[in-house]
Design a protein around this nucleic acid. Structure first.
Lengths: 237, 237
DNA sequence: CGCAACATTGAGGGCCCTCAAGAGGTGTGG
DNA sequence: CCACACCTCTTGAGGGCCCTCAATGTTGCG
């Protein structure tokens, strides 16, 4: 990939992707010709750390796959920074549903590290899906997973207090690491707090609370889970 | 439609749908052969008022379209009734994403009026979508709209206080009725409150608050919007 | 009428936000 | 090397929003 440097380049740099993109992580296992068709359509783009990926209200005509890096989605407010509602670690979809449903972005996205993106223009993609129904089903599944995840988070925001939300979040983080009880936080604590719908101060207090109860042991960005069952219990309410 | 009475019938009554189902409201405009294919696959089912439609943890193998009636989705807790996270008025999808993503229901659903349902078994539907890619695209769009709607609600829960959420809800209700300023609430106020993530008491106080500010005039289940602009302003924060 | 369900209103309190100050870490420049 | 700025996290104090509990008013129904 031969990409212009977006720090010095005003216009966003886009080019054909020469490499194979991580479709399995994005859409599940694909037939090789389906993957090739997507590869051929994808436009590669690089975004510098701290740069805006897209902004609320802008036209939204590309699906965006985050190939590598870490990005935050949320609403940036003047003099407040960006309130992250969602942190995305590549490889994952940074923007999946919005281009299908609406033609405007509904939130802001900022690069927290340097990003490698792959963008799929939605109209050509629609045409491709008409020719390749198996691929369309993969997008249906990916969207359905997104719906399930959002519904889960909404339920937690409505019915669980800050301690329970943190406990639940720690449990899901533990799911990823198989058979490990030590978590290394990949995001700033203020971003974790923001995702969980609380302030950094409250997150700090909740962490201390869980420590004092003997459920976890915190040291900087390392969290050691001492009592997974107890955490599950707290998260369950 | 000749349906058994689910009040006296233990097993859920299912039968082939003899009528044309309201696909335009569910999926947008469809080619007539696509609509016929869905009609042929749909199983009609009737649910009595107050009855459970499905329960958390049960296998979830059918998409469920609510043809007519009103249903509530949420978590029912013993001795507390069902905390409605979402009220669905037919015609609309009662269950769209879950069968694609997961094979278990993630919440409870209860009929608030007598319901007419149309159920689509997900595996045959998948096979149908492989043969009819235009139909698959319609499901992609429907799922994408659901994602957008959930994201919007999550944002409001995280960043808006109770008054702003109520104002925003009233504004969206006004969108439906075109050029009318009188709303007739179709749901119990406790269910409205529950959807908005607040208690009935708080909803009552917020209604009074908006009345005292001269933004709305409330009389029972009738709400007259006096100052749409003011409501928008309150909702916007 | 009596009963049941719902909505309203008030009192009290808890959760969590806001504001402010301090500690620790990191990069820059003198 | 240190001073300084800057960022983040932490901790405390105070207060506001909203939940909980309880009582009352209203509506619909047998």
């Amino acid at each position: 990939m031969n990409l212009a440097d977006p720090v010095t380049e005003a216009a966003p740099a886009r080019s054909r992707a020469a490499i194979r993109l991580p479709w399995p992580a994005l859409l599940g296992s694909l037939a090789s010709d389906d993957a090739q068709a997507l590869d051929a359509m994808a436009q590669s783009r690089s975004v510098a750390e701290g740069a805006q990926v897209f902004s609320r209200g802008e036209p939204s005509q590309h699906l965006i796959a985050l190939v590598d890096g870490q990005a935050a989605c949320g609403w940036s407010q003047p003099a407040r920074g960006l309130a992250a509602e969602r942190i995305v670690h590549g490889p994952a979809w940074l923007l999946l549903a919005r281009p299908f449903a609406d033609n405007r972005h509904g939130c802001d996205a900022v690069a927290q590290t340097r990003l490698q993106l792959a963008e799929l223009p939605v109209e050509p993609l629609r045409a491709l899906l008409l020719r390749r129904p198996m691929l369309a089903l993969r997008f249906v599944d990916a969207l359905a997973r997104e719906v399930g995840w959002l519904g889960e988070r909404m339920h937690e925001l409505m019915h669980k207090d800050a301690g329970a939300r943190l406990a639940a979040w720690l449990c899901t983080q533990l799911q990823g690491r198989h058979a490990q009880d030590v978590l290394r936080l990949a995001e700033r604590k203020r971003d974790i707090a923001s995702q969980l719908g609380m302030t950094p101060e409250t997150l700090s207090r909740m962490m201390r609370n869980l420590s004092e109860r003997g459920l976890i042991a915190v040291s900087g960005y390392t969290v050691r889970v001492l009592d997974p069952g107890g955490l599950q219990g707290l998260a369950g309410v």
